[in-house]
Amino acid sequence: MSEGALPKDDAVLRVDDLQKSFGGLAATDHATFAVERGTITGLIGPNGAGKSTLFNLISGFYEPDGGTVEVNGTDVTGMEPYQVADHGLIRTFQTPRKLEGMTVREAMLVGPRNQPGESFVNLFARPGTVGESESTNLAEAERILEEFEIDHLATQPATDISGGQMKLVELARAMLAEPEVLLLDEPVAGVNPTLAKKLKDQIRRLNEQGTTFLLIEHDMEFVMDLADPIVVLDQGSVLTEGTPEEVQGDDRVIDAYLGGGT
């Protein structure tokens, strides 16, 4: 059951015996694993294995039926998503989220957390501080867009860019929130190979700069190349965890994929 729990001294995220069922369906079934600081950890499993549900439980979108979630050593089980984010965990969604009526750089500016200008009182009491932080954030947003080579989109409507570009913007925006651990749900689904390669490079680079990643991905080539270790989820529980080679050679993993989730 807890084969996923390899010894980890410095876990930024720890999931212990997590459970969640929808009606009679156990979408998360006593899942236990941890994400070591500084890694890019992959989370794979057949469709319906419960990967996205796990993300929702970890980030506070769903209330677990049992078990605990720890971020940076703090028990965050049952907290609101914004509180989990305050502990350093940010997540993205499987389907890209569109911000209607905003330009790309405006949509990026939603990312930074605890901006002085997010307090209504500050808008009138300390407009100077609000302006300074907005300038800093805007410069930072444009710098990241440049790094991601999408700075030409900065003043485009955020809804008028391609699906792949949207994924890039999501990742870039999540980075502005300065997470310690970033959960990405299928970052390259529907993204063309060139853009996917770009995303891979960005994730690797950000990881080298200190961000820990936990990413769900069905693109095996992508995930096997990028992530280590890899956690395999099947029918709501952790099947195994190991290096890409170990996982690929594991018969149970092949069975799970061939047999289908349900």
């Binding site: 914004y82 984010a85 989220r97 925006r173």
Partner: peptide
């Protein structure tokens, strides 16, 4: 949900 995920 996006706002919540970004810590608002």
């Amino acid at each position: 949900d996006l706002a919540r995920a970004l810590g608002k």
